[in-house]
């Protein structure tokens, strides 16, 4: 500790090296672990397979509650997830399948409750939607009900994943 002026820079140098080596060790240890932990964020979302749900002949202009099962892989756990769709024919004849998950807080809505005829009604906070799933202004839901990917093949309706409607 004799050479004061020299000592200051030397000490600084030591401190920088120390920080560098310490940072290297921390990064070496934590980098694999953090990547390991954030893996779910970086996994590609798989689009679900289309599943046959109902035959076209059964459909009317009144929404019908249909359940169908989708194979789901959750890490090491594989199971069949039960999903619900309200399927009906629109005025122009197009088929529409709505997800009954309320866009407010995720409860399940019901069609045509005695108290709310010709509407979807959510029992949790009283959210309401029109027949085509448009949220009625003044009720809690911020967006229309999600719509399932849909295709018709050989007279059967196949459904995929539900998506929010663009621009609504």
């Amino acid at each position: 500790m004799s050479n004061k002026e020299h000592d200051v820079t030397r000490r600084q140098f030591l401190n920088y090296t120390l920080t560098g080596v310490g940072g290297f060790m921390a990064a070496g240890m934590l980098m694999p672990m953090v990547r390991f932990a954030v893996d779910p964020l970086l996994q590609n979302k798989k689009t679900g397979k289309m599943v046959s749900v109902v035959s076209v002949d059964e459909l009317t202009d009144q929404p019908q509650r249909k359940t169908f099962k989708v194979k789901k892989v959750d890490g090491w756990h594989e199971f069949e997830e039960q999903k619900i769709a309200y399927v009906f024919k629109k005025k122009n004849g197009d088929i529409m399948a709505l997800s009954p998950i309320c866009t407010h807080l995720g409860c399940t809505v019901n069609w045509n409750d005695p108290a709310y005829p010709n509407e979807y009604h959510c029992p949790c906070h009283g959210g309401r939607y029109t027949k085509t799933g448009i949220n009625i202004p003044g009720t809690p839901p911020p967006a229309p009900l999600h719509v399932y990917d849909m295709k018709v093949k050989d007279g059967t309706v196949y459904l995929g994943d539900a998506h929010p409607r663009g621009g609504a």
């Binding site: 000490r11 080596v21 060790m25």
Partner: peptide
Amino acid sequence: FLPNFLLKEWMVGAVFLIGFL
């Protein structure tokens, strides 16, 4: 101890960590 000696210890630690990884 800090920073002189700890730096030496950490250098040993860093070499050790590389081998370990």
